[in-house]
Simulated assay, not measured.
Amino acid sequence: MANEQYTHGHHQSVLRSHSSRTAQNSCAYLLPSLKPDMHVLDIGCGPGTITLDLAKLVPQGHATGVEPSSEDTLQKARDDAVQAGVNNITYALADAHALHFPDASFDVVHAHQVLQHVAEPIKALREMIRVTKQGGFVAVRETDLDAMTWFPANDGVKLWHTTHDKVGRSNGGEPNAGRRLLSWALQAGLKREQVTATASTWCYTTPEELAWFSESWAERVVSSSFAESALERGFVTQEGLYSMSQGWRDWGAQADAWFTMLHGEILCKV
């Protein structure tokens, strides 16, 4: 397996951002296929907010969230599940390229913004298919960096965008994963009729959304693993990181600011 590194890391600024993800805003395309007694695997679960929602949607079933590293993050997710009174949920360490579950273990295997970061996405998809029961579903949603767009123009945000691409690729990932999901699914061995390919967006327009989104990135570009990688590999200087951070704040303060993020989606019947 090629060397890979998670672009964003697990800094608190990243976890706060990822904790805004829910089943409704991150995997709405999957929800009509869920049944109350299903067993669901959530790969790359991060802080576990999507996993927790999925567990609530399968009350007679079970949800399992896995991360390749960061036991501290998983423990926080466990604590959150206890606080929410949800007990049909498990969190564990696992590598997407080599899942430690037997064949046909789950009714649904889900990943949100994961394959863009892994070294071998087709291998990961084959593992997802392997652990899915016949008649079950593999569901994947990925952003597409080049399809992101914003207004008004801002040099700091533009620098973030180009640097994000460089860091993601140097970490072994594919930042434009969204457009490739259907192709990857076919290369993983699925037939075209087994795959439903769709797209959806996140769009930030209200003052509250803009304040949250811009401030989140203003902190992440100077504090997270993204910043460390960008500096270490010479993609940007410290001054450049500060320029990105200020650029995000300046952009988010504009009354006409707008940002949209395209996601590719695949729902695969196994």
Rank of each mutant, 00 (worst) to 15 (best):
G135D: 04
L93Q: 14
D107F: 06
V58K: 13
L99G: 09
W212P: 00
G173K: 03
A2W: 10
S216G: 13
H97K: 08
T260K: 11
Q238A: 06
T143K: 00
L30Y: 05
E265K: 04
P59D: 08
T149G: 04
E209Q: 15
A197H: 14
P59Y: 10
E265T: 03
G135S: 07
T73H: 04
I50L: 09
E208W: 05
S13Q: 03
S245D: 09
C27S: 13
D79N: 12
A177W: 09
A28C: 05
A185R: 12
R21C: 02
A81T: 01
G240N: 12
E67I: 03
I50D: 07
L99S: 13
I129L: 12
Y242M: 12
T90D: 00
Q12V: 07
D146K: 10
G178T: 08
V108K: 13
S183F: 11
G85N: 11
H39G: 00
H11E: 03
S225I: 00
D155I: 06
M128W: 11
P68F: 09
L99K: 05
A2Q: 14
S200C: 06
Q187G: 06
L262M: 12
I50T: 15
H117V: 08
S225Y: 09
R179C: 03
H97F: 12
A77K: 10
A177V: 04
L267I: 13
S69E: 01
R169P: 00
H263A: 01
I129D: 09
S245A: 13
F213K: 06
R169L: 01
Q75A: 07
P59S: 05
G136M: 07
A253K: 11
I266S: 12
D42Q: 10
N25H: 06
V14L: 01
V86W: 12
D155Y: 01
A81V: 00
K76N: 02
A84T: 10
P102E: 03
D256A: 04
Y204H: 07
I89E: 03
E71C: 04
H97L: 07
R21M: 02
N171G: 01
T51K: 02
E71K: 14
S105A: 14
K166Y: 03
G264C: 12
L267D: 07
T51R: 09
S216I: 09
N87M: 04
P59A: 03
T49R: 06
R169Q: 08
Q75D: 10
S17I: 00
L267K: 14
H11Y: 02
H39D: 02
D146I: 11
H161Y: 12
V82Y: 13
T90C: 00
E232P: 00
I266L: 09
A124K: 11
L190A: 03
H100S: 10
S17C: 06
D95P: 01
T201V: 08
E239S: 13
Q5H: 09
L99W: 11
F235C: 00
S70H: 11
D42E: 04
E4P: 03
E265D: 15
S69N: 10
D103C: 00
Q116V: 05
T49L: 09
R180G: 01
D103E: 07
R249P: 11
R233Y: 04
L210D: 02
L181C: 13
D42G: 01
V109E: 10
Q5P: 00
Y91G: 01
P175D: 08
P47N: 07
T143C: 05
C203L: 12
V58R: 13
G234K: 10
R169D: 01
N171V: 02
Q246R: 15
G172V: 06
L54W: 15
E193V: 06
H97V: 06
P175R: 08
I266R: 14
